[in-house]
């Protein structure tokens, strides 16, 4: 555990708190992509299957349970809550996320470090996480004025990915035999997807006006 990894995890946690806060406090999920949230639920389930048979640390196990719980809570609110589900902009959330799932599965079957059931699913979760934000980014472009909490949620998610890159650089320079090419390449692609969003987020923040993605 290093400071970048801890900061990354806490930023990830904070992003989920911000999103849940928006949904619960405003009773609205306007501008939030249910497809992205469902992809994250799939990511967490397939990655954290190791909760059942491997223990790394209490910290890891607790965080995994919290991430799983928050992902399913968000999907529950967006799809089933009697008030919130009516605020979901179905017609703006049209990204074909099934292609992302299928593509990630094919890639995980082709490129993985060990051809076992759990390792392939774990690799699939890494590939799927890299692209899971795409439906949300597309939806932001279509939404027009983006409320503060939704904008901050996506910003915090991007920050979390950036901090993980710093964590890898730190670990690579301090640990022996630390080499994770699949995770690194996926993570760099994932972070790069936020570049456009970051540009407009900081520009609008600087000009002190509501976030709009052209």
């Amino acid at each position: 555990m290093n400071v970048f990894r801890l900061a990354g995890d806490l930023t990830h946690l904070l992003s989920l708190v911000v999103l849940l806060l928006k949904i619960v406090a405003t009773k609205s999920c306007r501008g939030v992509s249910a497809k992205t949230q469902e992809l994250y639920a799939i990511v967490f389930v397939t990655r954290y299957l190791d909760l059942l048979f491997s223990f790394v640390s209490l910290y890891n196990s607790v965080m995994k349970v919290v991430f799983l719980g928050s992902a399913f809570s968000i999907v529950y609110f967006m799809r089933y809550h009697k008030v919130v589900r009516h605020t979901y902009d179905r017609e703006l959330d049209t990204f074909r996320s099934s292609f992302l799932v299928a593509g990630s599965m094919v890639l995980a079957l082709l490129i993985n470090s060990k051809y076992t059931f759990f390792e392939v699913l774990w690799t699939f979760s890494i590939y799927l996480e890299a692209v899971a934000i795409l439906p949300q980014l597309v939806m932001l472009q279509r939404t027009g004025n983006i409320d503060n909490l939704t904008g901050n949620y996506v910003f915090l998610l991007g920050m979390y990915r950036g901090l993980y890159i710093l964590n890898w650089i730190y670990r690579y320079s301090t640990e022996r035999r630390y080499w994770q090419m699949i995770v690194w390449v996926s993570g760099i692609i994932q972070t790069a997807l936020y570049a456009d969003f970051f540009y407009y987020y900081l520009k609008c923040w600087n000009e002190n006006r509501t976030l709009v993605i052209p």
Binding site: H12, V56, S113, W122, Y164, Q180, V183
Partner: peptide, 10 residues
């Protein structure tokens, strides 16, 4: 069993 690299990350 020592787990490889990123399996100890979230």
């Amino acid at each position: 069993q020592i787990r490889r690299g990123a399996h100890d990350e979230l």
